[in-house]
């Protein structure tokens, strides 16, 4: 089951730039939460702070508290341990180019030292089914490389890869922004099905996407969380003027 995430006073910097300012919010378990806002507003930085991915950039720095259930992710564990529990799907599909489809899905387990063949076979099949890719690839799991798939298939492969480690939270950083409309709608259907089992945080610049998939939506602007509320409230009667301007397209 997924767990909720509680963020308190999170600040982040890239070099001297203060990209995230005093963000506090509660992300409920087993729901999809969308983060919207114009580019450069800090929404991507925010999700990267949730699994400490920002630390892979040597100039990045974050302060504040992020609790995943009872676990303080900045105090109680190493980054790799956090990332094993929080899956991530990136903006551009990034399958491992030299690995087969099977190895791509199994990579999170294999490269972490898990080697039980039979269990792996089961997990690969289940994850690919969850990602709605199984039927399309089951015949050449070990023959084709992950890079040989189409863009939409690659992104679903990346989702399967993230699901294979059985994460509690799934972070998606604009997962459909590089895809065509058909692939986008497939990804959205997927998110819909997955959110009963995982806590999903999805960053998107597409408001309709947020409206379609998420129970709650947060609006970011210049590094601050302006408003966080149930999605229908954000899109029908936002309480902040800036949110309303952005939603109605009057902004920027």
């Amino acid at each position: 089951m997924g767990v909720g995430i509680r963020v308190e006073n999170l600040n982040a910097w890239y070099g001297p730039t203060h990209t995230l300012k005093d963000v506090s919010l509660h992300i409920p378990a087993n729901r999809a939460t969308a983060l919207i806002g114009p580019s450069g507003c800090g929404k991507s930085t925010f999700v990267r702070c949730l699994n400490r991915m920002h630390e892979t950039n040597p100039t990045a720095r974050a302060e504040g508290t992020v609790m995943m259930g009872d676990l303080d992710i900045y105090k109680d564990a190493a980054p790799v341990e956090i990332r094993r529990r929080i899956g991530m799907v990136f903006q551009r599909p990034n399958p491992f180019p030299t690995m087969s489809i099977y190895d791509n899905v199994a990579s999170g387990l294999k490269l972490n030292g898990f080697s039980k063949r039979r269990v792996l076979d089961e997990i690969v099949e289940r994850s690919l089914k969850q990602a709605a890719l199984w039927e399309e690839v089951k015949d050449d799991l070990k023959k084709k490389s992950g890079a040989s798939l189409s863009g939409g298939q690659q992104q679903r492969l990346c989702i399967a890869r993230a699901l294979a480690v059985d994460p509690e939270v799934l972070l998606m950083d604009e997962p459909a922004s590089a895809l065509d409309p058909v692939s986008t709608s497939k990804i959205e259907d997927l998110i819909f099905q997955l959110k009963s089992q995982y806590t999903i945080v999805i960053v998107t610049h597409n408001m309709q996407q947020a409206a379609r998939v998420a129970e709650n939506t947060g609006f970011f602007l210049t590094g601050k969380l302006v408003e966080f509320a149930p999605t229908h409230k954000i899109f029908t009667m936002p309480s902040d003027k800036r949110t309303e301007d952005y939603i109605t397209g009057r902004f920027g």
């Binding site: 699994n51 991915m53 892979t56 999170g108």
Partner: peptide, 11 residues
Amino acid sequence: AVREAAYGLGI
């Protein structure tokens, strides 16, 4: 992006 994929899996 390929390296990030691996880091994101906790490798």
